[in-house]
C-alpha cells in the first residue's frame, strides 16, 4: 500500500481545478457543481467553497445519486439510495460540473449522465475528478483531472477525505490475487 497523494497535494489540485473551472466557463455565472456520492459530494462542496473564495459570490453545489441508473445492479448486492440534492435554481440551461473521486471504467459517469436527464437539461456537462486511473470501458474522459495515476487492474485506488475518513489521502493498494 502506498500513498499516491498526501493531504497537501489534494488541496493543491483542488485549488488548481477550481481555477480551471472558472477559466473554462468564463467565470462562475452559469456553473452548478454536482457531486456523486459519497466522496464526490464532499469534493463538490470543497470546490464550491474554493470558487466562492475566488469569486466572492455564492456557488451552488448539490449531489446526484446514480444508484437507480447503474448497469451493474443485477450483478451486485443492493445499495441503499442516497438523496439527490439539486441546488435551488435547478440545472436547466446551466453548465453542470460533475465531480467524482476516481475515474475508472467510466460507467459511473454514464449512469450520472442518465440521472441528470431526469432532473433537467443543462447547457453543458463537464467532468472533474480527483484521480484518473485509466482502464476506461466507455468513451468518456474528464475535463478536469487532479492527478493521472497509472495503475494496473490488480490495484485498488482508495480516496480518503477528512469529512468521513478523518484524513485526506489517496492510496494505491495491491489486491490479493484470488
Amino acid at each position: 500500500m502506498s500513498v499516491a497523494m498526501p493531504a497537501v497535494d489534494i488541496t493543491r489540485v483542488l485549488t488548481r481545478i477550481s481555477h480551471e473551472i472558472l477559466e473554462r466557463n468564463n467565470g462562475s455565472e452559469s456553473i452548478v457543481l454536482l457531486g456523486i456520492p459519497t466522496r464526490g459530494a464532499f469534493l463538490a462542496q470543497r470546490l464550491a467553497k474554493m470558487i466562492q473564495a475566488i469569486e466572492a459570490k455564492e456557488i451552488s453545489a448539490g449531489t446526484v445519486d446514480i444508484t437507480l441508473h447503474r448497469d451493474d445492479l443485477r450483478m451486485k448486492p443492493l445499495r441503499p439510495l442516497v438523496p439527490t440534492m439539486t441546488p435551488i435554481g435547478g440545472i436547466e440551461g446551466k453548465d453542470v460540473i460533475l465531480v467524482d473521486d476516481v475515474l475508472f471504467s467510466g460507467r459511473t459517469i454514464r449512469a450520472a449522465l442518465d440521472a441528470l436527464g431526469e432532473i433537467g437539461r443543462p447547457r453543458s456537462v463537464q467532468l472533474a475528478v480527483l484521480v484518473d486511473r485509466g482502464h476506461r470501458e466507455l468513451p468518456i474522459r474528464a475535463d478536469f483531472v487532479g492527478k493521472n495515476l497509472p495503475t494496473s487492474r490488480q490495484q485498488a485506488v482508495k480516496v480518503h477525505l477528512s469529512e468521513i475518513d478523518g484524513i485526506d489521502e489517496v492510496l494505491v493498494e495491491n489486491i490479493e490475487a484470488s
Binding site: 437507480l68 441508473h69 441503499p80 439510495l81 438523496p83 439527490t84 442518465d114 431526469e118 432532473i119
Partner: peptide, 23 residues
C-alpha cells in the same frame, strides 16, 4: 425504515419532470 427511506427517494422521482427510471 429502509423501505420508508427508499420510498422517500422514489417519491422524488414521482415528483420530477421525467417519472421513469431504468432500474
Amino acid at each position: 425504515l429502509s423501505i420508508l427511506d427508499t420510498a422517500q427517494e422514489m417519491a422524488r422521482v414521482s415528483e420530477g419532470p421525467v417519472k421513469k427510471l431504468p432500474t
